[in-house]
């Protein structure tokens, strides 16, 4: 009874006259868990449009950074259509829980590439994730705070198309963390460029630095006659970069040789070192690692 009364008094005094000590404690608010404590830099790969090669570029960028000797993490926040596990051939892996949270999937024994995706949590690869925004938001927060990423030099975040829940959540969480910037992926068609322009506006509004634009699927070299056809027109990415004052990181052709890399964790830098694609990834890595945003790849 006595205890109950003292609690009552305590509650009343706290509500009306908090002591300076109490005021200080209250000002701190609820304990916040800082996301990604061991991560040095974060690169977001985005595009307003779907199917332009965000996941392919994310995986190859992560592998290229790994080739350069960095410890890399790759987070796939496309919850409705995760592609990273398939592209890296890690679909069969399961995520384990430890005291500090979920353990990401490591692509090798040296733990130089850590991968996290919702696909690792699904029972069957055909299961749809039918979630509205709030649930997606919670999942992404968990990916950022509850995964034991350890020490990473770079965390690459692969995003779904659009400018909605997933994107807003990531950018909100990024406020407290140093984010190196965003790599925009586009194809040269007008329809894709329209959506990428929206994504650029999104980045400007949320204060995310845009590292540059990659023009993907620009031209297809016929394996029969070696004649290059611009299936999805050409130079759209270059023009967009010029108009919006953002560096143009490179132009990637459709290269069927890259298909052999699907389902493996081999980098284009080691497998096809002479290809145009490898050169462009090298220069993107250089830009990210040096932090200099000079237009390095002119032609």
């Amino acid at each position: 009874m006595l205890r109950f009364r003292s609690f009552q008094i305590c509650k009343r005094t706290l509500a009306t006259h908090p002591t300076p000590k109490q005021q200080e404690l209250m000002a701190r608010g609820l304990p916040k868990r800082a996301p990604l404590p061991g991560v040095t830099d974060i690169v977001v790969v985005a595009s307003g449009k779907g199917g332009v090669g965000k996941s392919t570029i994310s995986t190859q960028l992560a592998l290229a950074l790994r080739e350069s000797g960095f410890k890399v993490g790759l987070l796939d926040i496309d919850l409705c259509g995760p592609s990273v596990p398939y592209l890296l051939g890690l679909e069969q892996s399961d995520v384990y829980q430890c005291d500090e949270g979920w353990v990401p999937i490591y692509a090798d024994e040296n733990k130089t590439l850590a991968v996290m995706s919702i696909a690792f949590l699904l029972k069957s690869r055909n299961d749809p994730v039918i979630w509205r925004g709030p649930k997606k938001t919670m999942m992404i927060r968990q990916f950022l705070t509850d995964v034991k990423w350890d020490e990473l030099d770079y965390l690459i975040i692969d995003t779904p198309p659009g400018t909605s829940d997933e994107h807003i959540t990531v950018m909100e969480c990024m406020r407290d963390v140093k984010c190196d910037g965003a790599v925009m992926v586009t194809t040269p068609q007008g329809v894709a460029l329209d959506d990428v322009r929206k994504e650029l506006t999104f980045c400007r509004k949320t204060g995310v630095h845009v590292l540059g634009i990659v023009e993907n699927m620009s031209g297809f070299v016929c394996p029969h006659c070696s004649n290059c056809t611009n299936i999805f027109s050409s130079d759209g990415g270059v023009e967009l970069a010029k108009r919006s004052g953002v560096p143009h990181l490179g132009t990637l052709p459709i290269d069927p040789r890259l298909n052999v890399l699907i389902g493996t964790t081999r980098s284009v830098l080691t497998e096809l070192p002479e290809s145009n694609t490898a050169q462009i990834f090298k220069s993107i890595v250089k830009q990210i690692t040096n932090g200099d945003i000079v237009n390095a790849v002119k032609d």
Binding site: T163, S164, D165, R197, K198, T201, F202
Partner: peptide, 13 residues
């Protein structure tokens, strides 16, 4: 304009 982005969460959509 084409540059305008719709930055909306689910309920608004």
């Amino acid at each position: 304009s084409t540059d305008d982005a719709i930055i909306w969460r689910g309920p608004k959509k």
